[in-house]
């Protein structure tokens, strides 16, 4: 073993400079050319940064579209899911409560219209998206609270619906809510 010890230490130092030092440094330089310059792409409203395009935010006020429940309360200092198993009684009770709360705030909606994503926590706790169905069931509430026409709200939803060649159709919740605020 002794024969291999010194070469082992030396090659470790050399490769750690390559992979720990030069490799990420080179990528940080490449990132200067990318949107957001490697810091993450920001979203602004009235000239002020209000968040990151990819990082979901908590919306609890009725005038905004709500996102998904989050195990980290949308504080992106950390991240994570609920890690609740599908048969956990406590968890199922929690989902039931979310359904009840949702129905109180959206009285015109019937239960079967609520898509599961709005009452189940995301994997990251920072999911920036909801589906078009998730937005549609909230449109009436948002229109009423903001005192604007339902058509106007639906128009905004359609405008912010992103169709992809492959994969689920998504809506960026933060951008949709910024657009709502910009209406005035």
């Amino acid at each position: 073993m002794k024969k291999y010890l010194l070469p082992s230490i030396k090659i470790t130092i050399i490769l750690s400079i390559l992979f720990g030092g030069l490799f990420p440094l080179a990528l940080a330089c490449i990132a200067k050319l990318a949107p957001g310059k490697g810091d993450g792409v920001k979203v602004t409203y009235n000239g002020k940064v209000v968040g990151y395009e990819l990082i979901g935010q908590k919306f609890t006020k009725d005038k905004y579209f709500w996102g998904r429940p989050s195990a980290v309360d949308y504080n992106a200092a950390g991240s994570g899911g609920s890690n609740r198993g599908p048969s956990n009684p406590e968890y199922l009770k929690q989902v039931q409560n979310r359904i009840d709360t949702f129905l109180v705030h959206n009285p015109t909606i019937t239960k079967s219209e609520i898509p599961a994503e709005l009452v189940t926590a995301s994997g990251s706790g920072l999911d920036p998206n909801i589906s078009p169905k998730g937005a549609a069931v909230q449109a009436a509430r948002v229109a009423k609270v903001r005192n604007i026409s339902l058509e106007k709200v639906n128009e905004l939803i359609t405008k912010h619906t992103e169709h992809h060649t492959l994969g689920p159709t998504t809506i960026n919740l933060l951008k949709l809510n910024v657009a709502l605020d910009e209406l005035k």
Binding site: N83, R84, S122, D127
Partner: peptide, 13 residues
């Protein structure tokens, strides 16, 4: 409620 895409707990939209 409806599960249009499937089981969503712990998943991303």
């Amino acid at each position: 409620i409806s599960e249009p895409t499937g089981s969503m707990e712990g998943k991303e939209v």
